[in-house]
């Protein structure tokens, strides 16, 4: 069976020091263009697949490349290298600008990091939801209205709110507009970048249950970026853990959080505050993190902060390898525990 989405050897690097403005352009000219500039390795040789109907969580440290990865795979950004395949079709060769007008655009939709700010403040909720339906499905008139109302109803947004502007809606209502907008075109893959970060628990619960329901009703797949591990654990089938541009651990969400194998995942899981224990985490990351700017390809990215770290870790990069039946870890020493 072919996967819905197949990501292979995907990388995204940003040149730095190419500041905009005349000074930046001048500097660029004299230093000989972007190739000679240092680069941020935001996403570095990432591989994974997403099956139809699957919910994949993406977690990792702030700045590790989650937003960049999802912007490349939704083809809002062009990759530096690698392949993004939607079903049988290769999307990485087409520019982001061209893909914006492609019929397959409707198959991948994205809800942005702050739903409130990504909705045009001059659009009513109706217009916000209608916009992608007009552009991508060419709907007009009554057919458009019916689709907008269907999407709103699916997302639990009362129809009387459709005439309101974003600033007249509460945070939870705005989040629903953001989701309705993405769900309206009935994508096969919905990518959500921290959709609930700004919401309090009681609104968050409603949104999560909504996502769960839409998954069953529409058979959608999700990529769900979040810092809230308890939410990822509840919503996702599988989780990918990123560290400095690389996937360092992958596997079924519950198994990964209940029994983390990579030293970074262990530190992450142990730092989750809990109402029951209330104490401050036992496993605190020490040491200087490595820089994502032109990192050494032969040193484990976690070396220096890792509790295990030995000489081997600074001479060879641990590849992501299979451990046990359905787990993957990028650490020389990780082992399936009994």
């Amino acid at each position: 069976m072919t996967a819905l989405l197949d990501i292979a050897e995907l990388s995204k690097r940003f040149p730095i020091g190419t500041a905009t403005g005349p000074l930046g352009r001048l500097r660029k000219r004299f230093k000989g263009g972007p190739d000679h500039l240092p680069h941020v390795f935001a996403v570095d040789d990432v591989n994974f697949t997403i099956q139809k109907g699957e919910t994949v969580g993406l977690v990792g440290e702030s700045g590790c490349g989650k937003s960049t990865l999802v912007r490349v795979l939704t083809r809002l950004l062009d990759p530096t290298e690698g392949s993004v395949k939607l079903g049988a079709r290769e999307l990485s060769l087409m520019s982001a600008a061209r893909f914006a007008r492609d019929p397959d655009r409707a198959r991948i939709q994205m809800v942005f990091q702050d739903a409130g700010e990504s909705i045009n403040p001059r659009f009513t909720a109706f217009e916000a939801i209608a916009d992608p339906l007009r552009r991508l499905k060419k709907l007009r008139g009554d057919a458009l209205k019916a689709k907008v109302e269907q999407a709103a109803t699916r997302c639990g947004l009362p129809l009387e709110l459709l005439s309101r502007f974003p600033h007249q809606l509460s945070g939870g209502q705005r989040a629903r507009v953001g989701i309705a907008r993405a769900v309206g075109v009935e994508p096969e893959l919905l990518v959500l970048d921290e959709p609930t970060a700004a919401l309090d628990v009681s609104v968050q619960v409603v949104i999560l249950q909504l996502l769960q329901r839409l998954k069953v009703e529409l058979g959608m797949s999700y990529v769900f970026v979040s810092h809230d591990l308890s939410v990822v654990r509840l919503l996702c089938d599988r989780v990918l853990v990123m560290y400095l541009g690389k996937i360092v651990e992958a596997g079924p969400a519950r198994e990964v959080f209940d029994n983390p194998l990579h030293p970074y995942t262990k530190a992450l899981v142990s730092a989750v505050p809990s109402i029951e224990t209330r104490g401050v985490a036992k496993l605190r990351l020490q040491g200087e993190p490595r820089s994502p700017i032109d990192p050494d390809p032969n040193v484990c990215r976690f070396y220096g902060r890792c509790q295990v770290g030995v000489d081997a870790c600074k001479t060879s990069m641990p590849p992501l390898r299979k451990v046990g039946t359905d787990r993957e870890v990028a650490c020389h020493f990780a082992q399936a525990s009994a």
């Binding site: 628990v201 009681s202 609104v203 968050q204 619960v205 409603v206 999560l208 249950q209 769960q212 809230d228 308890s230 939410v231 509840l234 919503l235 809990s274 109402i275 029951e276």
Partner: peptide
């Protein structure tokens, strides 16, 4: 209620209560 709505220890989404 606020304490009970925290997704800390529940086993699945349906168990979470919203206020």
């Amino acid at each position: 209620m606020l304490i009970a709505a925290t997704p800390d220890r529940v086993a699945n989404l349906d168990e979470l209560i919203s206020i």
